[in-house]
Each structure stands twice: as C-alpha cells, then as structure tokens.
C-alpha cells in the first residue's frame, strides 16, 4: 500500500505540474498572438498546440499506466 500511495502522490504532483504549465502556456498564447506560418512551425507543420496535446496525453497516459500496473502487479 505504501508503494501505491507513493505512486499516487507522484502522479498527483505530475498532473498538477501539467495543469500549471497549461495555465502558463495559455497566458503566453494570450500575450503573444504571433502570426504563425509554416516557416515558424517546427519541421514546417508542428505547432505549440500539437505538442501541448501530446504532452497532456503523455502525462495522463503515464499516470494511468503506472497506477494501473502498481495496482495489478505490485500490491
């Protein structure tokens, strides 16, 4: 149970950090509405919003994966 508690604590901190970064990115996007084009995107097509979406999915997936595996295999 100690391991599960620690894992839940870590994932809560991780999700909180993700939430804080979302707030900061939203503030940045509001303050800098720069005219994006293919010349300013990463590799010509990757925008900040795409990376942000992958980040949210990765953090939630990471949290879900480790909590699930801890419940199923460690306890």
């Amino acid at each position: 149970m100690l391991v599960l508690s620690l894992i839940i604590l870590i994932m809560t901190a991780s999700l909180s950090l993700c939430f804080i970064s979302q707030l900061r990115l939203a503030t940045y996007a509001r303050k800098h509405p720069l005219p994006e084009s293919k010349y300013t995107s990463l590799f010509g097509f990757v925008r900040l919003s795409y990376v942000n979406f992958i980040y949210i999915v990765a953090v939630i997936g990471h949290a879900f994966l480790f909590v699930f595996f801890t419940i199923k295999y460690v306890i």
Binding site: S21, L42, V59
Partner: peptide, 9 residues
Amino acid sequence: LHKTFFRIF
C-alpha cells in the same frame, strides 16, 4: 517526461 516536454515548449 516533464523535462523533455518543457524543453520542446
């Protein structure tokens, strides 16, 4: 994980 994405941001 966070470090990687923060660097890309």
